[in-house]
Simulated assay, not measured.
Amino acid sequence: MKLKIIGILILQFLLFSCSGTISTVKKEYKLSDSGELKSNWSINSNEWIRKNDTLIGNGGPSHWGVLMSKKQLPKNYEINFKVNMTKESLFEVMLNSDKENYIRTYLYQIDQNIVIGKGVYHKNSDEYGKRGGPTLFKKNLELQNNKWYTIKIKVQNNQLFFSVDNKTALECSLEKSNLSQKGKLGFLTNGEVKIIDLSIKTL
């Protein structure tokens, strides 16, 4: 009986550790639970670092700082965190990143909008047209530096929900908007940004 229980525990451990997704049905990924950032994320230490429980990203107008997960997002998921754009104007969550294509969900200070768009990102190129992409949906929101914003992103049954501070939200159908339905998670900035309380769970 003891051997059977031990065998089940070992099998569960292997399933979690070898899982191809950044969270599983039985486990919620939290940044504070992560021993090393390198285990779950592809990281350039010149662009992103972890200081205590805070992710700090650095980029510039000519070279955006990008952090990409090593594992796929689940089909249905919810992402929650707080973000502070300490410098410059753009912070972007890259959803369902697959090859060069992804869904853009971002805060843009210049236009004072939150946005859902169709994105493209070529890792080894900063050329115009090989990063970013067209806006599909937007809503006005007053944005400023050195202020914390609460972000919630949910993808369920191919519906995308994106909200800031639980008061300004955008929604769309991935299928109808011809948006990527699977892929990895990433973060992008053209300045300095701080992220805390990051959690990713399967729905």
Score class of each variant (00 low, 15 high):
residue 99 K to D: 14
residue 45 S to K: 15
residue 166 N to S: 12
residue 161 F to S: 15
residue 47 E to A: 13
residue 102 Y to W: 10
residue 195 I to D: 06
residue 110 I to Q: 15
residue 32 S to G: 08
residue 178 N to R: 11
residue 44 N to V: 13
residue 77 Y to M: 07
residue 151 I to G: 04
residue 85 M to P: 05
residue 179 L to C: 00
residue 79 I to M: 03
residue 193 V to Y: 02
residue 156 Q to V: 10
residue 181 Q to Y: 01
residue 88 E to C: 08
residue 179 L to H: 04
residue 152 K to S: 09
residue 172 C to V: 14
residue 202 T to A: 12
residue 106 Y to V: 08
residue 58 N to P: 05
residue 65 G to S: 05
residue 170 L to N: 00
residue 128 Y to E: 15
residue 126 D to Q: 06
residue 108 Y to A: 07
residue 90 L to M: 07
residue 100 E to L: 10
residue 50 R to E: 07
residue 23 S to R: 06
residue 31 L to D: 09
residue 200 I to H: 01
residue 48 W to M: 08
residue 195 I to H: 04
residue 101 N to A: 11
residue 109 Q to R: 13
residue 63 H to M: 04
residue 103 I to V: 12
residue 55 L to S: 08
residue 124 N to W: 12
residue 122 H to W: 04
residue 189 T to L: 05
residue 176 K to V: 12
residue 163 S to D: 12
residue 22 I to G: 03
residue 7 G to K: 12
residue 46 N to H: 11
residue 65 G to N: 01
residue 85 M to L: 15
residue 155 V to W: 03
residue 12 Q to E: 09
residue 195 I to Q: 05
residue 88 E to D: 15
residue 39 S to P: 07
residue 49 I to L: 08
residue 163 S to G: 01
residue 49 I to A: 09
residue 188 L to A: 14
residue 109 Q to N: 09
residue 98 D to N: 12
residue 41 W to D: 03
residue 53 D to C: 02
residue 79 I to S: 00
residue 63 H to G: 01
residue 112 Q to P: 00
residue 69 S to A: 15
residue 30 K to C: 14
residue 64 W to A: 09
residue 19 S to I: 05
residue 33 D to M: 12
residue 77 Y to H: 11
residue 104 R to E: 05
residue 91 F to V: 02
residue 132 G to E: 00
residue 171 E to L: 02
residue 83 V to C: 06
residue 183 G to A: 00
residue 17 S to P: 01
residue 182 K to T: 10
residue 10 I to W: 10
residue 42 S to A: 12
residue 60 G to H: 03
residue 156 Q to A: 15
residue 3 L to Y: 14
residue 163 S to H: 07
residue 169 A to C: 12
residue 147 K to N: 07
residue 192 E to M: 11
residue 185 L to K: 00
residue 107 L to P: 04
residue 19 S to A: 13
residue 123 K to R: 08
residue 28 E to F: 06
residue 4 K to R: 15
residue 83 V to F: 08
residue 163 S to A: 14
residue 154 K to F: 06
residue 91 F to R: 01
residue 76 N to Y: 03
residue 84 N to H: 02
residue 117 G to S: 05
residue 83 V to N: 04
residue 119 G to D: 03
residue 81 F to Q: 01
residue 47 E to L: 10
residue 119 G to M: 07
residue 136 L to H: 00
residue 61 P to W: 08
residue 61 P to N: 07
residue 179 L to Q: 02
residue 50 R to V: 09
residue 155 V to T: 08
residue 181 Q to D: 13
residue 30 K to W: 10
residue 37 L to A: 10
residue 155 V to D: 02
residue 136 L to R: 02
residue 22 I to Q: 11
residue 99 K to Y: 09
residue 75 K to Q: 13
residue 16 F to N: 13
residue 92 E to D: 14
residue 170 L to F: 06
residue 117 G to N: 01
residue 30 K to H: 11
residue 103 I to F: 03
residue 192 E to H: 05
residue 133 G to L: 06
residue 143 L to Q: 03
residue 104 R to I: 06
residue 20 G to A: 14
residue 103 I to Y: 05
residue 46 N to Q: 13
residue 76 N to S: 11
residue 123 K to M: 07
residue 57 G to A: 10
residue 99 K to N: 14
residue 85 M to E: 04
